[in-house]
């Protein structure tokens, strides 16, 4: 009983809402949020940026992948209030219907999706994969930890494995990523 009472008291006195300023797709937003709000729900429920998807809410599927200060992150695994002044890029910032990013175009060209629900996360991860390889960040399958990393199918598959696709478009996603890598080279 004592611990419950202490907990209740603590809860009542604690601040349950906080203000946070986020820069999303280049635009600054000032929000007052329930502290429990994940970055994903801040985007989807408070800013109507529903391109980032909620597949599991537990960091298990990757459908919510966004960029925070240039790094890919599962937006469901981080609270919005932890990101004061951070620069966040979502699929809406990657490209729109009238101005597709090359990766988005490559996904269309190779039919790299079916139902489309994991797709925004796949595209964000695909872009990050190429950047991470270019930056020399090793993965589980990297053979040489120093020096440039070969842009192999194995590297791409490994780095994309946090993004589940139940429609099973993996082979086509790989083709799309290869296309973008080739265009860049």
């Amino acid at each position: 009983m004592t611990s419950t009472t202490t907990f209740e008291k603590h809860r009542e006195s604690a601040q349950t809402r906080s203000s946070v300023a986020l820069t999303i797709n280049g635009q600054r937003h000032e929000l007052t949020l329930d502290n429990r709000t994940t970055l994903l729900d801040a985007l989807r429920e408070h800013l109507n940026l529903t391109g980032s998807k909620k597949g599991c809410d537990h960091g298990q599927c990757g459908a919510c992948t966004v960029f925070i200060d240039g790094q890919r992150v599962n937006a469901c695994l981080t609270l919005a209030v932890m990101h004061q002044d951070d620069e966040i890029t979502t699929i809406e910032g990657v490209g729109g219907v009238e101005h597709l990013d090359p990766m988005q175009q490559a996904f269309i060209d190779h039919d790299a999706f079916q139902c489309g629900y994991c797709t925004p996360g796949q595209i964000c991860s695909a872009k990050a994969t190429l950047e991470e390889i270019r930056a020399g960040i090793p993965s589980h399958v990297t053979k040489e930890l120093t020096g440039p990393i070969e842009l192999s199918d194995e590297e791409i598959r490994e780095r994309m494995s946090g993004n589940l696709c139940r429609c099973g478009a993996y082979a086509n996603i790989l083709e799309a990523i290869r296309q973008v890598a080739k265009e860049r080279a």
Binding site: E92, L100, Q105, I108, F113, T119, P120, I123
Partner: peptide, 11 residues
């Protein structure tokens, strides 16, 4: 396709 790759298809 364009709606799906841009996250604008409404689920």
């Amino acid at each position: 396709g364009a709606l799906k790759v841009t996250g604008t298809a409404p689920y």
